[in-house]
Simulated assay, not measured.
Amino acid sequence: MKLLAEMFTIAPGNKDHRVALRCAVGVFVPLITLLLLGRLDLAIFASFGAFTGIYGRNEAHARRLSLQVRAGGLMLLVMFLAAVTARVDALARLSPAGTTWVLVGATTLVAGACSLVVARWRLRPSGSLFHIFAFAAIASIPNQPPLWQCMLVAVLTVLFCLLIGQSSRVARGRRSPWVSPKPVSLTPAEERAAWLESAGYLVAAGLAGTLGTLAGEWLGVGHNYWAMVAAVVPLVGHTTRHRVSRGLQRIAGTALGLVLLAGILLLRPTPWQTVLVIAACQFGAEMFIARQYMLAQVFVTPLALTSTLLVAPVPPSILLRDRIVETVIGAAVGIAVVLAPGAWRRLRSRRGTAAPGRLS
């Protein structure tokens, strides 16, 4: 009942509309610019570069800049590695199945490494969900534009988001004192927790990617990295109940989001209308992501899938099917990873209490 209640409870707002507006503008301006230039083939690099604006939500301007510079730099590195991975000649010589497994392995390493970096830099949102998504999505796109063009768009988008993050300083009443934040190292306990969390991301992403790939081979389902993204969702949270709830909310929110997306696709939006939909969904996602995760997913789902359709059009029915199947696989894996340590401790405890009885 507590899990069910949490799925239908919304926390009070905390100036979320400001963050949502910054993020919506941060993705809309680069995408509409690329549309006007006739270069939507570069849209995926702008979309992921715009994730920079998600960090430092309600921080003072100086700290927000510091956090967003780090977050943007890490995202640029992930995008660069993904673009290079897509171009490695060795991958092209492998069979399609071999390429898929290589990408699963590489994405799993990104999941663990970025989770550790994010923890050490104290970035919020925590974890490596965005980095998993960015790396796998970009690395799986064949025949990409020249690397310098991809990275130029990514860098310019990151810089634009940094400017947006500081834009409220022009309003005297909104200007916070410019105090350079001092870096705070992790305590030994926090360092240990960061390593354990990184291991959890490795296990969840790797297992979900494996099952998602096998499901693709058996059922004809694609986009296995969506399972990897969904698998790490339950790993964020302070309690086991909250983490399990996030996994369930991911599934329910995705299902509702697919209904919304189906309605949008029935309207057959033009490219510029699709860009507007992406910006609106980005606004909606940031309005609720910190307050009600299931509701946020209703916006995140069409946001992610319309971005995919903008770059690589595929039959919508296939896209909708792949999303729900991979999400269920990933969320189930993530919940299992969350529950496994507790189950193991209870099993060891029972064995420990049973052993003296056998000896007596």
Rank of each mutant, 00 (worst) to 15 (best):
V27Q: 03
P183K: 04
G212H: 04
G56Q: 03
L339F: 05
E326Q: 15
Y201E: 04
L35D: 14
V155Y: 03
A252K: 01
Q144A: 08
A136D: 01
R351F: 07
G257N: 04
L3I: 14
V179W: 01
T52Q: 03
V259S: 06
L37Y: 00
L310A: 13
L248W: 09
P341E: 05
V158M: 13
A106L: 15
L109S: 06
L40T: 08
V300G: 00
V158A: 13
R241H: 09
L3Q: 10
I141S: 06
L94K: 00
F299C: 12
A46C: 02
G38R: 00
L202D: 08
V311E: 03
P313D: 09
R321I: 10
A5V: 11
G38C: 01
Y225I: 03
A205T: 14
T301R: 01
L347Q: 09
C114A: 11
G72W: 02
L35S: 14
G284S: 05
R122E: 12
L74Y: 11
H61R: 06
I164K: 01
V325R: 07
L81M: 13
T107Y: 11
V170E: 06
V338C: 13
Q149S: 14
R87M: 12
M75H: 06
P356H: 05
V153G: 03
A83W: 04
A355G: 02
R350D: 11
V325G: 04
P12G: 08
V277D: 12
L159N: 01
R39T: 10
E59K: 11
G247C: 04
V84F: 03
L320K: 08
Q144T: 12
W226E: 06
L261K: 07
L81D: 02
Y201Q: 05
V117H: 03
F283H: 05
P313I: 12
A355V: 11
A189E: 15
L214Q: 07
R18P: 00
I264G: 00
V104S: 10
A280N: 07
G127M: 09
A231C: 11
T327V: 13
L207A: 13
W218F: 12
L347P: 00
V184E: 14
G209C: 10
G216I: 05
C150Q: 15
L42K: 02
M294F: 07
S185Y: 08
I278V: 15
V232Y: 06
R268K: 14
Q282H: 00
G220V: 02
A62K: 09
L211V: 15
V84I: 12
G13F: 00
